[in-house]
């Protein structure tokens, strides 16, 4: 190509009016989303094996390049990167992880400026007040389901309502839920691989949660779409961004006491029957807390400290989670009636 002249002359004469219909840009969004969009990034880790998606989403929460996303083992890679709404790709590191909470804070490596590198101005989204969220609220989620958009393409928007807020009683039976989530937001907007890490927004565009990974409820065989509420993330973010270097190792969970569950004096019927997982009382140890509470053999334990007991295993699990010294309510079925007993737990 010696000269641009001939090219220009032969090719460059087409006028505007010979164009096809004006082409659209990528599209605008309704107001609240338009504000949130620049803060959403596509996150690429090292998954893709055993059903763990390599792709996800994240939210820029600080202009210095801090991104909140959902915790996943796929983030543990030196090739971790994030792509912003303009299609810029940044190398990223895990600045802090909290698998118990189900989130991680990433730090993007921003270009330092200078030759050939435009200064990047990130447009973060502030953490909103998730305390005000309640069931029935309209919500939007932004994310990259199935990871099929990339570069400057905009991630997908889903709308739904808040299903419930709190720590559902069933949480122990939900697969794969982060272990130390005292509160979560469930919603009914579509949730697919790749949506995790994206923002949960109120109808006015306030960031109130980070979408979690896909979890399934064993109790209902349904997928639960959960988000980690921002109220649980404020301290996490505030503290982590003061650090001078990444510290991706998750905090150790507090050591379990080796003492074992509190003592009740109840002996459940644990005969190796195929058909009965129910928590029937076989024997009440005399002089025990159970005896003082008024338990009798053949009582069926239905609720312990507010938790439904469907099996001996449930009973063991709930009991282990209780501290000695407290008095709990136990609902038992005795004959044709349900009665409530008060049981004081003793130290082993």
């Amino acid at each position: 190509m010696n000269s641009r002249g001939p090219v220009r002359r032969t090719l460059g004469c087409a006028l505007g009016l010979t164009l096809c219909a004006t082409l659209p840009a990528f599209g605008q969004a309704i107001d609240p989303l338009e504000r949130a969009w620049p803060a959403v990034v596509k996150v690429y880790g090292a998954g893709g094996f055993q059903g763990v998606p390599a792709y996800g989403s994240g939210v820029i929460v600080d202009a210095r390049g801090f991104v909140l996303t959902a915790w996943s083992i796929a983030l543990r890679t030196p090739s971790l990167r994030a792509v912003d709404v303009d299609g810029r790709s940044y190398p990223a590191v895990i600045w802090r992880a909290d698998p118990g909470l189900g989130v991680a804070l990433l730090k993007l490596e921003l270009p330092v400026g200078g030759l050939g590198a435009a200064k990047v101005e990130l447009r973060p989204l502030a953490l909103g007040r998730s305390e005000a969220v309640s069931p029935g609220d309209t919500i939007y989620t932004l994310g990259n389901p199935f990871g099929f958009v990339y570069g400057a393409e905009r991630v997908a928007v889903q709308r739904g309502v808040v299903t419930t807020v709190g720590a559902p009683q069933e949480d122990a039976r939900v697969l794969n839920l982060p272990e130390r989530l005292p509160r979560l937001i469930l919603h009914d907007a579509p949730h697919n691989p790749g949506t995790q890490g994206g923002p949960l927004l109120t109808r006015s565009g306030e960031l109130v949660g980070i979408c979690g990974r896909i979890v399934e409820s064993r109790a209902t065989n349904t997928l639960l779409n959960f988000a980690v509420p921002t109220e649980l993330l404020r301290d996490f973010v505030r503290e982590a961004i003061t650090w001078r270097s990444p510290n991706p190792d998750p905090p150790r969970p507090p050591a379990e006491s080796a003492a074992g569950p509190p003592v009740t004096g109840l002996r459940l019927l644990r005969a190796h029957l195929v058909r009965s997982p129910l928590a029937y009382v076989e024997r009440v140890v005399p002089e025990s807390p159970a005896a003082r509470a008024g338990f009798e053999p053949d009582d069926l334990v239905f609720r312990l400290a507010g938790r439904t007991i469907r099996s001996c295993r449930d009973y063991d699990q709930v009991l282990e989670s209780l501290a000695a010294g407290q008095e709990v309510e136990v609902v038992v079925k005795r004959g044709p009636a349900l009665i409530t007993l008060r049981l004081r737990l003793e130290a082993p």
Binding site: G51, V52, I73, E170, L175, N176, S217, R218, A219, N221
Partner: peptide, 26 residues
């Protein structure tokens, strides 16, 4: 129902797993 032992197993989905039966929740 056999609970999965790791995250990857859980991501597989309960439906793909043998022994799946009807929900027992409330």
């Amino acid at each position: 129902f056999q609970a999965p032992t790791n995250e990857a197993g859980a991501e597989e989905g309960i439906l793909a797993r043998k022994g799946f039966k009807q929900a027992y929740g409330p």
